[in-house]
């Protein structure tokens, strides 16, 4: 993994991980358009600072739950690029052996629960994991990702109330990218923020610049410390923007080009580049080296995925029950 493989400092590693997620998603996009991948895609470009800022300081034994847009979360939690790409190719070497697909990336061995693609469905599951962490007397924590759309699901309410009531080590990370598919958040809730809903459950809530990986990381560290210290859950609302469509064929007719342009100027990767160059002691060659290294990793993963074996049709009949019926 990135963290051991090079001598980059923390900020450079965070940058590398964001670039990896971006290039992974761009690669998927091209492969998809070229017709090489089956299925559908829900991409993460523009939101990389959320995944990296939230997950960078988690331990391997900490947990993470994700959504129908899981690639950034999975990669940042340590699921290998190879197994994610292979899953997109529906190969047996995929992280779900080709049974999951683009919306269920995950690998429980590194704490990444296979992504839950029912909006809001993962939030109560994360609470159960938090309950288990606490009952087993561990100091492990759970980061639970969901979007602004999920904040209007009943599951959100029941789960936050439960986590608060039982003082569980869960960090609710709401990526507010302003649109639930095509529906703008202003058409979906009257509250000014999602974070303010935290007060209804008696837990801290905070609005964070979700395109600033350092800001996200600062908020995450605070919430993780609280959770590990048995001080209970937190709700972080990460304000961000997906610079691509909701899914495979979305021309984004519901939002203006001006809005998209304004958010592109707040691109989290460009901002981190600027920070590293101005305050992080990096020069352009360093960043280029990181980018090239990422290209190599993706190229390698792509070769592996392409040459990996296809599942047999009858494999579909396995794994319905753990250990067989």
């Amino acid at each position: 993994m990135t963290k051991e493989a090079n001598k980059l400092n923390k900020h450079q590693q965070m940058y590398e991980l964001m670039v990896l997620i971006r290039r992974y998603e761009e690669t998927i996009s091209s492969l998809f358009l070229e017709g090489e991948l089956p299925g559908t895609i829900h991409q993460y470009q523009g939101q990389e600072a959320c995944a990296v800022g939230m997950l960078f300081d988690l331990r391997k034994d900490d947990y993470m739950t994700s959504t129908h847009r899981p690639a950034g979360h999975a990669l940042a939690k340590g699921v290998s690029v190879e197994s994610c790409l292979a899953e997109m190719f529906a190969k047996t070497t995929g992280c779900c052996k080709g049974k999951g697909g683009s919306m269920h990336l995950g690998d429980i061995s590194c704490g990444a629960v296979p992504a839950i693609a029912i909006v809001g469905g993962g939030i109560p599951v994360a609470v159960g994991i938090g309950l288990s962490c606490k009952m087993r007397r561990t100091d492990t924590v759970v980061v639970c990702f969901f979007g602004d759309g999920a904040a209007n699901e009943g599951a959100f309410h029941e789960a936050l109330n439960g986590a608060a009531l039982w003082n569980l080590p869960v960090i609710f990370a709401c990526e507010n990218n302003l649109y639930a598919a095509s529906t703008c958040i202003r058409q979906a809730m009257k509250s000014e923020s999602i974070a303010q809903r935290a007060s209804a459950y008696g837990i801290p809530g905070e609005v964070v610049d979700g395109n600033d990986v350092l800001a996200v990381n600062r908020a995450a560290l605070k919430a993780i410390e609280r959770a590990r210290g048995n001080e209970g859950p937190s709700l972080l609302e990460l304000e961000t923007y997906r610079i691509v469509g909701h899914s495979r064929s979305d021309p984004c007719g519901y939002r203006t080009r001006e809005e998209e342009k304004a958010w592109r100027e707040k691109d989290p990767i460009l901002r981190m580049e600027k920070y590293l160059l101005e305050h992080g002691g990096a020069n352009p060659e360093d960043l280029e080296k990181i980018q090239k290294n990422v290209e190599k990793r993706i190229e390698h993963a792509l070769q592996e995925a392409r040459s990996a074996p296809e599942p047999q049709a009858e494999d579909a009949l396995q794994d319905v029950y753990y250990g067989g019926e």
């Binding site: 939030i123 109560p124 159960g128 938090g130 288990s132 009952m135 009943g154 029941e158 789960a159 439960g162």
Partner: peptide, 13 residues
């Protein structure tokens, strides 16, 4: 929803 979801989460962990 919490009861069932918490059971699922606890079970997988």
């Amino acid at each position: 929803i919490l009861i069932a979801g918490a059971a699922v989460g606890a079970a997988i962990s």
